[in-house]
């Protein structure tokens, strides 16, 4: 009787320990996989999903974990940056600047997320910039809409402290994730996912 109890206890212990090990390894493996995997490509600091068919269990698990209800790549291309130009993790401890041009897409936006993958609380309720809300450099003050050409440029600033324009508040986060969404991008984007011009994320402070 005691022997059976002992065996049952050992079995129970093995299941609990195995469960903790297995689940932890799977989740941490998926988190690491978001840095280096077959279905992601890199464009500077930005990684991009090249295939959202989610045919393999690992692909499905990864997207469910970090981008639940994402759309197929035929509809949206998601570029995600968690590191700066030098490969260091994005963090609220530093300020960053991005200088970019208008991506070839019907709608595009930059959104900053905290380490919990949610929007970062801030007094001004600023979470994102898109083609209509971003302030362009060198725009014509009399005809601001007319000055927005394909060559128009903008500077985006990530910082804890308020900036003069295009400020994305970074709150208090050890890790940040910046997402660039391209809805209905041009064929050129699909053909050159790893080489279309995307802004470098430069640490300035």
């Amino acid at each position: 009787m005691i022997r059976k109890l002992k065996l049952a206890l050992v079995g129970f212990l093995a299941i609990i320990i195995s469960g903790v090990i297995g689940v932890t390894l799977a989740i941490s493996g998926l988190r690491n996989m978001s840095q280096e995997t077959d279905f992601l490509a890199w464009n500077g600091s930005w990684r991009v999903n090249v295939d959202m068919s989610l045919e393999t269990p690992k692909q499905r698990a990864l997207v469910a974990l970090v981008g639940l209800f994402a759309l197929r790549e035929t509809e949206v291309v998601y570029y995600i940056a968690t590191v700066d130009r030098d490969g260091n993790p994005l963090t609220s401890a530093h300020d960053y600047i991005l200088s970019g041009t208008i991506p070839e897409a019907r709608y595009w936006s930059y959104t900053l997320y905290g380490e919990d993958d949610f929007l970062i609380p801030n007094k001004n309720n600023i979470y994102a910039y898109n083609g209509k809300t971003i302030q362009y450099a060198e725009r014509d003050s009399l005809n601001p809409e007319l000055s927005i050409t394909a060559q128009a440029t903008y500077n985006l600033k990530i910082s804890q402290t308020p900036q003069d324009e295009n400020w994305l508040p970074s709150g208090d986060n050890d890790n940040l994730a910046l997402t660039l969404r391209l809805y209905n991008p041009s064929p050129d984007v699909y053909n050159n996912l790893e080489s279309i011009p995307l802004p470098q994320i430069i640490k300035v402070k």
Binding site: V10, G11, A14, I17, I21, G22, L25, A26, A64
Partner: peptide
């Protein structure tokens, strides 16, 4: 005990990967 734990851990690993989306 270690062998059983390793075997079960592998099982839990693949179950997690397989069913995480449904769980979420």
């Amino acid at each position: 005990f270690l062998g059983l734990t390793a075997l079960l851990s592998t099982g839990f690993y693949y179950l997690t990967i397989q069913y995480l989306p449904n769980y979420i």
